[in-house]
């Protein structure tokens, strides 16, 4: 009896497993497309994840022989594996840093840098907030920069930003320190990378930031554009008035980003392709496919596509296997439109 029970249990499990898996993997690869096989491993930014996953899914429809794995350990987490050469493609919400470039050199890893979409970091307030419709970058800087040594922060209430605004304490929500989003926002607004006041909620999950802002009429926070778009009923985007450009307040939108008037919070998103991996036919096919449908997929997952010119230039660059970065190992925030940046030669 006892043996029956034990082996019965095991047999059951094995049989169940077999039954489920037997039904799918024996299917031959899809007739469309030449029969590619192999494995593609992708990791990196959680912001880019959604777009890459969508592209991977479409790619898989025609190439079911290629086993793909898409993960989202964050931009820095992805680069940690990428510089060791264990990753084929790395999603990134900021350009590769100098340290990561050095690590690549040390490990003889060469990379191809390809922008694939835009994100407009959106400064959002609660939908009930009827006073704040725009903020200048100076005001944002004063709001987010760290307090002076040993003193309380000078901006605690809305009234501290502009005198006519209510005397309510601002609840601040932002990305956590591990994310590319935090790095970009601090560099663009506080003008010093990773420098931020510490009396705000720094959350790893962008949805938690959305919930935080939606739950407090006096809240303010920043999220990637894709998190703002589906929730305009609860969140209100704040127009950004660049103090440097004097061009007036601009709301985040696809048009504003494409005309590069939404400054300085529009940022390109990237994939980095391992140069050696790019020789493999399945990776080559995948990256070409990515650049081809990047624009339409961006629209489908509510991201902001690049201009057609940028995708074409990216495809040319990939065809020539040009390695290196155009951002010099650091500053993601530039004044130039991406199309101009794409004209420059990448520097290895």
């Amino acid at each position: 009896m006892r043996r029956n029970l034990k082996s019965g249990l095991m047999l059951g499990l094995v049989a169940a497993c077999a039954a489920i898996m037997g039904c799918d993997s024996s299917v031959p690869s899809a007739p469309s497309g030449e029969s590619l096989s192999g494995k593609i491993e992708i990791d990196g930014s959680s912001t880019v994840y959604k777009l890459t996953q969508a592209v991977a899914q479409e790619f898989n429809k025609a190439n079911s022989g290629v086993a793909m794995k898409v993960d989202k350990s964050g931009t820095s987490g992805g680069f940690k594996k990428f510089v060791l050469g264990t990753l084929d493609v790395c999603d990134a919400s900021r350009p590769i840093s100098q340290k990561e470039i050095d690590d690549c050199k040390q490990n003889n890893v060469e990379y191809i840098e390809l922008p694939i979409a835009f994100d407009a970091l959106t400064v959002a307030v609660n939908a009930e907030n009827d006073w704040c419709t725009s903020l200048t970058t100076d005001e944002l800087k004063k709001l987010w920069e760290p307090a002076p040594e040993g003193k309380p922060h000078p901006v605690m209430t809305w009234k501290d930003i502009r005198p006519g605004w209510p005397d309510q304490k601002i609840a601040l929500f932002g990305a956590d320190r591990e994310s590319g989003t935090f790095e970009y926002f601090t560099e663009a607004i506080v003008e010093k990378k990773n420098s931020c006041r510490d009396d705000c909620s720094q959350l790893a999950d962008d949805n938690a930031i959305v919930v935080g802002i939606a739950g407090d009429p006096a809240a303010l926070g920043y999220v990637p554009y894709a998190y703002y778009v589906p929730r305009t009923d609860k969140l209100k985007a704040v127009a950004i008035d660049s103090t440097k450009d004097q061009a007036g307040p601009v709301l985040p939108s696809v048009e504003a980003v494409n005309k590069s008037t939404y400054k300085p919070l529009a940022r390109p998103l990237f994939i980095y392709v391992n140069r050696k991996a790019a020789d493999r036919p399945e990776i080559k096919a995948f990256v070409e496919f990515y650049l081809k449908i990047g624009a339409s997929m961006s629209g489908k997952v509510k991201y902001i596509p690049l201009t057609d010119v940028a995708y074409t230039k990216g495809a040319e660059q990939f065809a020539k296997l040009q390695i290196g970065t155009r951002f010099g190992g650091g500053h993601a925030v530039t004044d130039q439109p991406l199309d101009h940046i794409m004209d420059q030669e990448p520097q290895p």
């Binding site: 898996m21 799918d24 024996s26 079911s64 290629v66 086993a67 898409v70 993960d71």
Partner: peptide
């Protein structure tokens, strides 16, 4: 340990024909 967020294919079947 690096379990994926998304995988395209099921694991290969443990029984073959």
């Amino acid at each position: 340990i690096g379990a994926a967020g998304w995988v395209s294919n099921l694991p290969p079947s443990p029984v073959t024909s």
